[in-house]
Design a protein around this nucleic acid. Sequence first.
DNA 1: CGAGCGTTTGAGCGGTCTCAACTAGCGTGG
DNA 2: CCACGCTAGTTGAGACCGCTCAAACGCTCG
Lengths: 258, 258
Amino acid sequence: MTSRTLPCIVQQLSVKMARGEATECCQRCAAEWAPCSVRSLQPRQHVFFAGDPQAYVYKVESGALRLYVTMPNGRRGVIDFCLAGDLVGLGTQDKHLFNAQALGATQLRCLPKVAFARHLLQNAQACFNLYEAATIQLNRAQFRTLVISGHDAEKSLAAFILRLSLRRQQQCDDPFVIPLPMSRSDIADHLGLTTETVCRTFTKFRRRGLIRLQRSRLLEIIDIDRLRELAQEAIGYDKQKRRRSNVGAQPQACRSRT
Amino acid sequence: MTSRTLPCIVQQLSVKMARGEATECCQRCAAEWAPCSVRSLQPRQHVFFAGDPQAYVYKVESGALRLYVTMPNGRRGVIDFCLAGDLVGLGTQDKHLFNAQALGATQLRCLPKVAFARHLLQNAQACFNLYEAATIQLNRAQFRTLVISGHDAEKSLAAFILRLSLRRQQQCDDPFVIPLPMSRSDIADHLGLTTETVCRTFTKFRRRGLIRLQRSRLLEIIDIDRLRELAQEAIGYDKQKRRRSNVGAQPQACRSRT
DNA sequence: CGAGCGTTTGAGCGGTCTCAACTAGCGTGG
DNA sequence: CCACGCTAGTTGAGACCGCTCAAACGCTCG
């Protein structure tokens, strides 16, 4: 399957940006997670709400979470989805800035933040790993703003599908058959679209033979190359990059005026 | 003007999310920055390009940078603007993922990444501070996706203006008179809009008496309350939170200006 | 089976983009 | 000094895409 490789751009980002690495970070310093408690959540049950004191750092063992806020105008914004292996609750702010809710039955490991921080301060390596994990998430978030700002339903959704696929690959699952733990409206609120538009775009992809859908929650990727083409127009990556190392004046982008 | 305080939402986020704190972090552990070299850039000169080896961590001393990528379709995406005090080049990836270009005459402090990392591994506190800085930036990026996903020019621009204003406040500058180091198209590419729409929206704000513009690069906020109303519809913040342990005190939220 | 919810599809509207023309500011050179 | 060119910024007229409103469909569970 020659072309059944994932898009190079996404892959490149993946190596550093995807949450898989955060997982890896944490496995490296698994000591923190050994003694922590486990919490089981029912579907739709909240882990915490925005404004709650941020007392724990969580790691998703199984299931999935959505991180979201609701706007004053009632619109909901889904910041991210957390799948198995993801960390939630990083940072040193004392209150959560968003809500976290289980999509299906979900299990979490919970580590008290105080112990977490104490451990970090005594262990520079662990702290460094976490710093790394945080910057990886940061890069992901920054690039997602680009995808969203594209304002193009097809590009956004293609990028979203590829991200899920990549995630599957990193977990050693089939990257071409993707269960969707989240609803259409979750996806819509995540991409800044509406449920209807997400639906229509899924349908477009299906009719064009890019994907197949079973029971609307099981996605199969048929033509990943064309998905890649779509997504690459959204996920930016600079072609000029190798032109020069560090110094000034630049062709079109950089007309210096002394 | 009675309520010349900044929007509480933005303010609350500010305390933790704005880059000012990253600055503060760095001042706390200023040791790293003492011996580092200084680099001066002309307007439009690039600090680095996407794909360049990530050899330094930078701190903006004066001036401003834009972080951007160009998409395969030619569209440009401005990930962020970096003003004085901001850190650039965090993370452990070996190559830069975006371009960094000076908006005007700009001075940077440059610290070799290797030394930086070594120092961090020997100093858990410094590392922890950096972890904090990274998660702050992460939160900012996450919430910006919400602003952008609103797809509403007025809301996005209002939120953008308020963010700049907040930044001014943190730097102890007048938060109601804001120089804009970036062009209209920079703003457009940052918010996922077009130059024309940004212009039109500025004009709308001006005609409604929300702002005043001088020479198009000097912005004055007239009616921050209405700007706040607009922005609050974009910057999500969950109302449910009040219901819980958060009630009452907004600790450091409201440093009102004199 | 029916209730309920999530999903899908359709018709019309509105905001933003596109394309285009025009203005303002500024440095250059005659 | 003004004319000129260049760029950034502004404003206008129509097209397009996603949103809104509405209805039908499909699955799941009692």
